[in-house]
Structures are given as C-alpha cells and as structure tokens.
Simulated scan of single mutants.
Amino acid sequence: MTLYLLDTNAASEAMRGHPAFDAKLQSLPPGQWCISAVTSSEIRYGVASRPEAARLHRIVDEFLRIVPILPWDALAATRHGALRADLKARGTPIGDFDEMIAAHALALGAVVITDNTRHFARVPGLVIENWLRPSGH
C-alpha cells in the first residue's frame, strides 16, 4: 500500500476544503495518508502568526485531530543529514523544512503530495505527486 505524505501546502489545501483534493483524500483507505510532525509544526507556526488566528485555530485543531501525524525520528534525521549535504553540494537546496519533509518521506518510502513539485523534484529518489494541478504546473 502506498503511503502519501502531505507537505505543508497540500495540508493547507485540505484544510481549505479544496473539492478535488478532498475527494482524493476521501477515496483513500484510512491510514494511507498522513503528515510529518515537521508539517504539523509549520501549520502551527503559520496559524500562530496570523491575525485571524482564533478562527484558524479551530480549523487547524480539527485537521490535526483527524490526520495521522508521523513522528520525525532517527531514520528521518539520518536521511536528512545526507540529503541536506547532497543538495547543498549541488547548489540546489530547497529550504530546511522542505528538506526535512523530503527526508521523512524517503525514510518512510512515502510519496510526497505537494503543489511545489519543482522544488521537491530536486530531491533524488523522492516520488512526488501534485493533486492540485495534476499536470504539475
């Protein structure tokens, strides 16, 4: 069974109620999609830094209550160290949090769901899908 790991922009679309995105998530069996603890942190930071936080907190809390949040563990950290060094050496870093999410997906053997395919495509061996714009553009 394929595991789908939503990156932060994909999780944000799920919380916004994007119809096609929601339909895709609902078509999957329970446990087939999740987010990284890194994504949970980014979402919490985003809502805490917005003026309309009270309304957003309710939406975020509900989403984080239902979505499986996988811990960022030692295997993810190991993958991250090697990935970050490789991307830096090639001059193609993608940012700390995206590198952590990509490393987590590699450690899990998961597919990253993102609208930022050009960014994540820099990661060797990472499988990505864009459910918002299926052509990837």
Rank of each mutant, 00 (worst) to 15 (best):
P93H: 07
A77K: 04
V67K: 08
P71Y: 00
V67L: 08
R79D: 02
A105M: 03
A77S: 13
L87E: 00
A76I: 01
R79I: 00
L106A: 08
A82G: 10
V111S: 13
A102L: 00
I94Q: 09
A105R: 03
I69P: 00
D115S: 13
D96W: 09
I94H: 12
P71G: 10
T114M: 07
I101M: 07
A89C: 09
I113C: 13
A74Q: 15
A110I: 02
H80E: 05
I94D: 02
G81F: 08
K88A: 13
I94W: 10
A107L: 02
V111D: 12
A82T: 11
D73I: 01
L108W: 04
D115I: 05
R90N: 10
W72K: 01
I101Y: 09
T78M: 11
A74T: 12
G81K: 08
G91N: 02
I94R: 11
W72S: 02
R90T: 07
D98Q: 03
G91W: 01
R79H: 11
R65E: 14
I69H: 04
P68A: 12
D73Q: 05
R65I: 01
H104C: 05
I66H: 15
M100H: 06
G109R: 05
A76Y: 01
V112Q: 10
P68G: 05
L64S: 05
L108S: 07
K88Q: 11
A107T: 02
R90S: 10
L108I: 03
D98S: 10
G81P: 04
I101Q: 04
F97R: 13
A110S: 02
L75T: 14
V67Y: 08
P68C: 02
D96F: 13
R79P: 04
L108F: 03
G91Q: 00
F97Q: 09
I66W: 15
A85R: 13
L83I: 10
D73L: 01
R84N: 13
L106M: 05
L108Y: 00
L83Q: 06
A103F: 09
R84G: 08
L87I: 04
P68Q: 14
A110N: 03
D115E: 11
I94M: 07
R65Y: 15
I113V: 15
I113S: 10
I69A: 04
T114H: 11
R90K: 12
A74H: 14
M100S: 08
D115P: 05
D96G: 14
V112Y: 10
R84F: 14
R65A: 15
L75F: 02
I113F: 12
G109S: 06
T92R: 15
L87N: 07
D96P: 06
L75G: 12
I66L: 14
A74E: 15
T114D: 07
A89V: 05
I94T: 03
A82V: 12
L75I: 03
E99V: 08
L64I: 09
D73F: 00
R65T: 15
I101A: 07
A85W: 09
I101N: 03
E99D: 06
L64P: 03
A82S: 12
L108T: 05
L106W: 00
E99Y: 03
T114E: 09
L87G: 06
G91S: 10
F97V: 08
L106I: 01
R65C: 04
M100L: 14
A85E: 08
